[in-house]
Design a protein around this nucleic acid. Structure first.
Lengths: 247, 247
DNA sequence: GGCGTGTGTGGCACTGAGTGCCCGATACTG
DNA sequence: CAGTATCGGGCACTCAGTGCCACACACGCC
């Protein structure tokens, strides 16, 4: 991807810029691939060859970013998965922040054209999927897998939340502080499930990391305390703990 | 939508069934709208008129479900937003569970064709958006808005997690128990921000639905039990409960 | 130099999704 | 009965996307 990044990347970028210019002027649907080809100074056929589809022109650079993030996760150690994923999300955010002009223009186009909106959503879903895969670490139907799913979704949601609010007013400085707070906010709950040794749904004093107790509203406080105490006793199997750590 | 649901709905369903049959047999891309029209016994033009696009045929019933859920949320009271949203997610799940055959077939098609996959993702994003809007209750840049975003994403993620695992082995009974546990699991952390009066983390015996206690690994069981007991006492403010219900 | 070979590009023709327009059939209303 | 609204079918058109072929320009090799 970055192999022969001589003039290729610039050339690619110039085509994208030409396309965006037309999309903004005439509207996305009203702009044909012939128009774009002419504006960019190459043949219609080559345009298709280089970018695949009309949508892909708009998301070409986004695709590169996705590739970078994917490789980052592949190379990342597994010692602190949540931190790694928030770092990855930070990379994505940085990808937008580094080119505010491009980001804002694409944002406006995407908001206006439903088809592009769906495409954007599919794009972020790809990130989410990469995050999920990394966090789950191969597990499929365990509690950890579910937590991975939820944390990945929350991280993406938080990312998009901050991103959108910035893109609405791009003249403001990039809100890194809000980004970091949002990340901390959404990972502090379920994130704990993912920190530490994988698997081992061990609840109690014997190595598990957290204790989660869920009760119906009316439960007597003393009863709750008693059952929690019982559940925490490693040697007592009489405590009814299900696979998800419920008492 | 359900206004003139006489033979219209059945007729619609028959067309969808015909299309799915062809998609499975010849593949999605290899099946033309002309083929579908012929198989369904109507003209190509009418097919487009009734369903809009080729993809829409496959997601027509899904669209109806989305409409139902949207109306449900519009009519829902705001007293327990998290419960309402999990109930809405349950409706969606029920939508799949009620027609296992359709669900499984669509699942297989969607998995095989990237374009359909993106469409499916966009569809679930619509649910997520509806959930988010409902949970945020008009707020935009507050903590509640962010929590709404994350909870909506997590609920959708959990829904999809359980759904996919069921669709992979559709012969098993519908795993409602796992669905409910997954919902409880993903809403117990951030959900508290959304429960009760905005901002005030109403945890304890005074109306909260569940109690969530999170502790570092090494904590002494007796200490845990004592603090849980204290935290559950409505009249005792000495229990250190933070805004998220952590003790 | 000439000569394969691989790669990128343009031109051309074709398929198929999606749309605008018109016409005929069927209902519904006074 | 005439007037009209609605719906389906047929037709022609645009445009995204693809397969195919020919051409140009790079190389490495004899």
């Amino acid at each position: 991807m970055t192999g022969r990044a001589d003039g290729r990347a610039d050339e690619r970028h110039a085509v994208v810029a030409a396309a965006v210019r037309l999309f903004e002027r005439r509207g996305y649907d009203a702009t044909t691939m012939g128009d774009v080809a002419e504006e960019a100074g190459l043949s219609r056929r080559s345009l298709f060859r280089r970018f695949g589809t009309k949508e892909d022109i708009l998301f070409a650079e986004h695709e590169d970013l996705h590739e970078t993030v994917r490789r980052f996760l592949d190379a990342a150690p597994g010692d602190d998965p949540v931190a790694t994923v928030t770092a990855a999300a930070r990379m994505v955010f940085q990808g937008y922040a580094a080119a505010p002009d491009t980001s804002v223009r694409r944002f406006r186009l995407v908001r206006a054209v439903p088809r592009l909106r769906d495409r954007e959503i599919a794009m972020t879903a790809r990130y989410q999927s990469a995050f999920r895969r990394y966090l789950a670490g191969g597990e499929r139907d365990t509690e950890r897998a579910l937590a991975a799913e939820a944390v990945a979704a929350s991280v993406i949601a938080a990312h998009n939340h901050v991103l959108r609010s910035w893109l609405r007013e791009p003249d403001r400085p990039v809100p890194w502080d809000r980004f970091d707070r949002a990340m901390a906010f959404v990972t502090e709950g379920l994130g704990d499930v993912l920190r530490g040794s994988p698997g081992a749904g061990g609840v109690g004093g014997s190595g598990g990391e957290v204790v989660v107790a869920v009760y119906p509203p009316g439960t007597d406080p003393d009863e709750v305390a008693r059952r929690v105490r019982r559940a925490l006793d490693p040697g007592d199997p009489s405590a009814a703990i299900d696979s998800r750590g419920r008492i």
